[in-house]
Write a protein that binds this DNA or RNA. Structure first.
Lengths: 199, 199
DNA sequence: CGTCTATTTGAATGTACTCAAAAGCGGTGG
DNA sequence: CCACCGCTTTTGAGTACATTCAAATAGACG
């Protein structure tokens, strides 16, 4: 059990280390602010209308952020896999009601950072301002690229881009979720995949 | 001339006042950091590959942020009109090369805030951190909504949403730019408009 | 094993694109 | 001020992309 916990924090510390440099004491303090959590497949991490109370780092598993339109159809804004942070960023920052749902597509284990703990972290280790600013900037750029791709790419090209961005994920999750991410029907995705593999 | 200058800063101070409250001295200081600029129709404010050196507040006129794909086609990420800030936010924040172009669709007058001046502003009037954080959050949410709409809306619905978001703009700019924003061809937009007005 | 949901396949339809040609509009120079 | 040139918009025909509906098959889970 202790061994597992150690491995968990390895991944997140490795992720942080890609952006800022921490000494031993800072690492320990950071760890002390993180709460492990697990969420089972099909359960929700966040409901539309609720406030996103923490940022969640994904240690293992897979989540999706999605909305539901007037016709009851799902649209996937993003997936989260190992090594990603996930939340409704807007809701977390503003503490206003979230505009989307987040649920688990696999049994998932998380390390959660609450808003109060994040503020403590900023106060004690201001370097983290930089870290989370970089995370936000990356998210912003990712959104912009996705808008671009939705303007210029065909569904087949968007599928290939999805595979590039989330390696291996196409074998882990249901195709209907991928279709809801690409903005096409599951039926059409099925045809696309046959065509792509047939080549 | 002095009267015009006064009116210019009225619009931006009004915009700031919607988010934070400033006293007389703070307003004056803020003004002293802004540089007026004008840009003529078809000229570029920012070229892809260059660094976005300032945030530009649009006093009058219209700009577009766009990319060009491998086939030479334009894709419009956003338009900017009176009362909006425009820049390649990522490039401005990171001072890395911009991934898009910005040019003027009408003769446009701006109030520009350079990065060094922004830092001075943050130092002297920390309230502005809140102001620009709100601007960033709004931009983030706008991107998210647009992704959502590209997933769930048909071209006709996206056109109506464009009209709602940029009131009156459809009569000010060329339709090919609107088409490049919606992700459709100018030919198809022309047919859409006939259908919508015919009803 | 049976039930429920997801995926595949096929046919018919709708949405959006390409190509081509004509009409409109704006700027420029004579 | 008019005539012309270039660019944008409109219109039409044919095509490609993506959807709907329906039915059959395959997988997942109790």
């Amino acid at each position: 059990m202790i061994i597992f916990a150690a491995m968990d924090t390895d991944l997140i510390l490795q992720h942080v280390a890609q952006h800022i440099r921490l000494d031993e004491a800072e690492q320990t303090f950071f760890n002390s602010l993180l709460h492990p959590a697990t969420i089972r497949r099909k359960d929700h991490l966040l409901l539309q209308g609720n406030v996103s109370r923490h940022e969640s780092f994904i240690v293992k598993g897979c989540l999706r952020t999605y909305t539901v339109d007037d016709n009851g159809q799902d649209h996937v804004l993003m997936f989260g896999i190992e090594g990603w942070w996930i939340s409704d960023l807007y809701s977390f920052l503003t503490q206003m009601p979230a505009s989307c749902f987040i649920d688990a597509l696999e049994d998932t284990s998380l390390l959660q950072l609450s808003k109060p703990n994040l503020e403590k972290l900023y106060e004690k280790v201001p370097k983290f301002e930089r870290y989370f600013r970089l995370i936000l900037q990356n998210a912003f750029v990712a959104h912009q690229q996705r808008i671009n791709q939705s303007l210029s790419f065909t569904a087949g090209e968007r599928y290939l881009e999805f595979v590039r961005k989330y390696p291996g994920l196409e074998q882990r999750i249901a195709q209907k979720h991928i279709a809801a991410y690409l903005g096409i029907t599951p039926v059409f995705l099925s045809m696309l995949r046959r065509k792509l593999s047939g080549k």
